[in-house]
Amino acid sequence: MTDRLPHTLRSDALDNRERIVEAARAVFAVDGLDVPMREVARRAGVAPATLYRRFPTKEMLVTEAFAEQMQACHTVVDEGLADPDPWHGFCLVIEKMCELHARDRGFTAALISNFPHAVDFEARREYALKAIDELARRAKEAGRLRPDFVLDDVLLVLMANSGIHATSLTTQVTASRRFAALAISAFRASPDVAPLPPVVPLAPPASVSRRSRAG
């Protein structure tokens, strides 16, 4: 009995940790990073003391919760860099990054936050930003990206994209695709205009009616 107890405790601790991370992912995705740690503990079904024992700071919890998203971001920018057409690669990154962030509101906040003690997270973010900057440089040299584009413009797009709220995730992602197309059109150096993805209704019908009557 005593020989099996340490293993049982380790297993319970692992289960608690996984529940905490899953709860954090779920609540951060919907409500952003301002959710109190106690609420994450409640959603995970553990005591606050248990949460703080596993994750003494919110920084540690946030970076763990978004580790998979940061890896996905890493993959997206690598795919963009590998594209022989730098403008196409740049557009691909904007489109996929917007969709990734539309699916998880908290990830945008995590990406633009400062986590000085999360070395791996910071390194991955720095890699992603430098990769986008390099891709933008190539697209400018190809004459496809407007010359006054700066890296902060991508962060601005992601911040605006995270403000999209819809009645379902599918609608939210569809709206995000349209927004990404609008952003890409604004970034384009040449005047030619590509068709936008389909529009989806975001405002309640009553609001639409009022606007129509006002017009």
Rank of each mutant, 00 (worst) to 15 (best):
E79R: 04
V173R: 03
D152W: 00
A118G: 09
P195H: 00
L202P: 02
R138G: 01
R144P: 04
S162I: 08
L182N: 00
R210Q: 13
V30G: 03
R25V: 07
R125P: 05
F115M: 04
V35L: 00
L135Y: 08
L155I: 10
I20D: 06
E99R: 15
E39P: 09
V93R: 12
M97I: 15
G215H: 15
D148E: 05
M37C: 10
L202I: 14
A181D: 01
V208M: 01
F179W: 02
S209N: 14
L14Q: 05
I132S: 07
Q172E: 11
D34S: 11
A181C: 02
R210S: 15
Q172A: 10
T8R: 13
R42N: 07
A49I: 09
P205D: 15
H101L: 15
I184K: 00
E68H: 06
Q69H: 08
C73Q: 10
L155R: 06
L5P: 04
A142L: 10
A160L: 04
G32F: 00
S212H: 15
P116H: 01
E122W: 00
D78L: 15
I20K: 05
I94W: 01
A47Q: 10
L151I: 15
A102P: 09
L61F: 11
H117W: 06
A118P: 05
I112H: 01
V200T: 07
C73W: 12
A203H: 11
G163N: 14
M37E: 02
V193L: 14
V193S: 00
A206C: 11
L182M: 02
R125M: 08
C73F: 11
I132Y: 06
M159H: 05
A175C: 00
F121M: 03
F179C: 11
G32V: 03
I94K: 03
R146V: 07
E141S: 05
A67S: 09
T174L: 14
H101S: 12
L129Q: 01
T8G: 15
L129S: 08
L196D: 10
R105S: 11
M97S: 13
A131S: 13
Y52K: 09
H165N: 07
A183K: 08
T174K: 10
A13G: 12
M60G: 05
P204V: 14
G163T: 01
T170Y: 14
A139W: 04
C73D: 13
M70W: 08
A186K: 00
E22M: 09
H165M: 02
I184L: 13
V77W: 00
A49K: 14
P6I: 12
T108W: 03
E79F: 11
V199I: 10
A194S: 04
P86W: 11
S207T: 13
E134G: 12
E141K: 07
L100H: 09
V200P: 14
F187V: 08
E122A: 12
R17G: 12
N16A: 06
G106P: 02
V200E: 06
Q69N: 08
H117P: 00
R210K: 07
P6S: 04
A203C: 12
V46F: 08
P204L: 14
K58H: 02
Q71Y: 04
M97W: 14
D3E: 13
A110G: 07
V199N: 04
I184D: 07
D85W: 09
A203E: 13
R177G: 02
C91T: 15
D83V: 08
R177Q: 05
N16R: 07
A181V: 11
V40P: 11
G163Y: 07
D133A: 02
